[in-house]
Structures are given as C-alpha cells and as structure tokens.
Design a protein around this nucleic acid. Structure first.
Lengths: 201, 201
DNA sequence: CCTACCGATCGGTAGG
DNA sequence: CCTACCGATCGGTAGG
C-alpha cells in the first residue's frame, strides 16, 4: 500500500488489472463457464454489477486474460531465444521462460487460461489469438531447427514441436509449487529428456 | 451385457448408453459447466427432464463418462502391455492403445473428458478416479523401467513419465482425424522421439 | 462503483 | 419418458 512517494509499483489501485488477475485465477480453477461474474466481483471486493463498469461483457474479461497471457509468454520466451547462447543453453532458457510463465507466481493463470479456455473465446478475439499463437510456435520451430543443425536432436518436425508443447503445457496438471521439483529443475530435466546427455557439461 | 442371444450389437435402444455417449461428446466440446442438461437431452432426442430418469444428477453423468473412459483406456493399454513383445514394440503398442482411446472413434470423448473435466467431479467419484489413475500410471512407469533396463532410454523417473503423459494427452489439442497423420503414425513417431532410432529395425 | 432489478436459463422434481 | 413447473442463479442494465 505505498500510495504516495514513488508510486511506480504498487500504484493507485488499478481495479481493472485486479479484475483481470482474479478472472484469470478463477477461469483457470473452475473454467470459463464455471466462473460467475459474482465470483470475480467477490474476489476483488466488488458487488456483482461493478465489473461491468470495467468490461462490457464476460467474454471481454476472458479476452483480456488470454491476450495478456499470450503477450507475456511470447515476450519472455522471445527474450530467452535471443540470448545468444549455445543452442542447448538457449533451448533450456526458453523452456524455463515458458514454464515460468505457466507455473510461476506472476502471469500464472493468464497463460494457463490461455491454454485451456481459449475454445470459449468468441470469434473476434479468437482470430487474434490464433495469429499470435502461430507466431509463438514459430519461435519454437526455429529452436528445434537449430538443435537439429547442431546435431543435438534428430526430429525437428511440426509433430515433434507439438510433442514438446505437450510436455511443457501438461505440467499445469501436475506441478505443485510445494512439490519436490523447482521450475528450473523441471526445465533442465526436460532439456535432458529431449536432447539426451551427450553434450552435457 | 450380452442380454439375450444374438442381438448382440444393435441391441434394443440402450438409452442410458446413448446419454453417456452424448454427454461425453458435449463435455469434451464445451466443458462440463458449459454443457446443459438440455444440450444432452436434445442430442439424444429427449425432453429436458428425461435424462433424470436415467441419472439422478448431472454430476452422475460426468461420473459415468469419466469412469467409462478410465476403464476403457486402462483395459486397452493393459492388453498392449501384456503382449509379450520386445520392450520397444510393447511400448509402441501401449502408445497406440492410449492414443486410440483418446483420439479414435470409439471411446473418444470418454477419455478426453476424463483428462480435462475430472476437476469438476465431486469428491466421491473423484476419489475413485484417483485410485484408478494411480494404477494406470503405474503401468507406464513399469514400461519406462523396462525401456531403461533394455538401454533404450536414460530417464525413467516419475517426471519423465509425466513428460510422456503430456505428449500423449496434448494430442487432443491438435490431432485432427482428417489431418495428414494417422494415429498409428503419431504413435510411431512418438516412440522414435522418446527412444531415438538406435534400435530401429 | 453500488443498489436494485430484469429476463433468460439452469438443474432438478412431481405426477402421470 | 413427457408435461409442466419450481426456486435459484446467471449475465447484464438503469440510474444514480
């Protein structure tokens, strides 16, 4: 609650952002149709009619969550992809970035909602998401191509990329923050699983 | 089953089974909370109150779908596991069995609903499903152990099994029956992806 | 952002 | 399995 001084971070209460965060959490937990406006309002201390001051419809809330998740995960992974390290180190950094968005504390539910609730989007936002997703997947396809060129994997096909996405995205189903594995450990193990240990330092 | 004599297949209209099938399809398409009793009733040509002649609650319908899916996929994979072939061939047969249940025409939506809508189960059926799932996953853990013992993979840990489950179960998100890959091709490619081609005939 | 409310739809039931 | 219906809840709105 540092309101005055350098109100850089804990800014004046951004209620819209609060709603998006609460909606993301609830959409992830209970699914989009299983979440009510009253759930969301309650989670941010509002009455049931008030979220509509910030969003026109429930659909728009889903759109905001999904688009925010898409942007965040793309940005994080793109940064890792451009880090200029070796193919293996770059790949591992990308894995970590993706998992961190998906499982970490920050964008957690944005990305998870993106992956599992996108089918409930209406056509307008949906079309936008498809484009962004294609662009995102291209980054991974390129990463696989680099790994193959370096002789670290054998298969850099589209299906191989989908296998990889499956391993990454399925973590949502089993990862627990209080479990025995950290996100970084999982990323490392996944890299080894895909590449093997031939090039292991 | 096997009621009278030879009217084995196109039996007297089994309305309960019709409801389970329709419910599975709809739960998979629109999610459990997004599916209404009226949707299900409509899909089998009933009025909205009639499904309750066969099931006490909507929850019970979900339970029936999920349990049926669990049983079917377990049975199919157990059979493949016991085929007595080489570790690699057995593994590939198990992959195919799992994918066939998940993506094939038969139990299609049962298994898919199982994977994605189980969180909406109430505690009673949920507990039962957890037990069955553990038993199912044990089969896979054993398959990985056999592969490692045969020198075909390096990592047979729990997390490795979860990676594998991710690759398998994520196919629901992208597989299309009219696409360029058959289920059998995907199973084969997945085996190669995990094992590599060292032992390839 | 709240109060007060609307029409629509939901899961489920009684009675046949 | 249908007809007819119930109370509860839903997404959304008007008016302040």
């Amino acid at each position: 609650m540092a309101v005055s001084k350098s109100k850089a971070m804990a800014e004046e209460p951004n209620r819209r952002a609060d709603i998006v965060r609460a909606a993301g959490q609830l959409f992830h937990e209970k699914g989009y149709p299983g979440t009510t406006i009253r759930d969301i309002a309650g989670a941010v201390g509002m009455r049931s009619g008030s979220p509509f001051y910030h969003f026109k419809t429930k659909q728009d809330m889903l759109g905001a969550v999904v688009l925010e998740g898409m942007q965040a995960i793309h940005e994080a992974v793109a940064k890792a992809a451009a880090s200029g390290k070796s193919p293996r180190a770059t790949f591992e950094a990308m894995l970590l970035a993706h998992l961190d968005q998906l499982l970490g504390e920050e964008g957690q539910d944005f990305a998870a909602t993106l992956l599992h609730e996108s089918r409930h989007l209406d056509s307008k936002v949906s079309a936008e998401v498809v484009i962004l997703k294609d662009r995102y997947e291209l980054m991974w396809q390129k990463a696989l191509k680099d790994l193959k060129r370096a002789g670290l994997i054998e298969d850099d096909s589209t299906v191989a990329r989908l296998f990889l996405m499956g391993m990454l995205n399925w973590t949502v189903q089993w990862y627990r923050p209080d479990g025995s594995k950290s996100v970084a450990q999982i990323a490392r193990q996944l890299a080894s699983f895909v590449i093997g240990n031939r090039a292991r330092a």
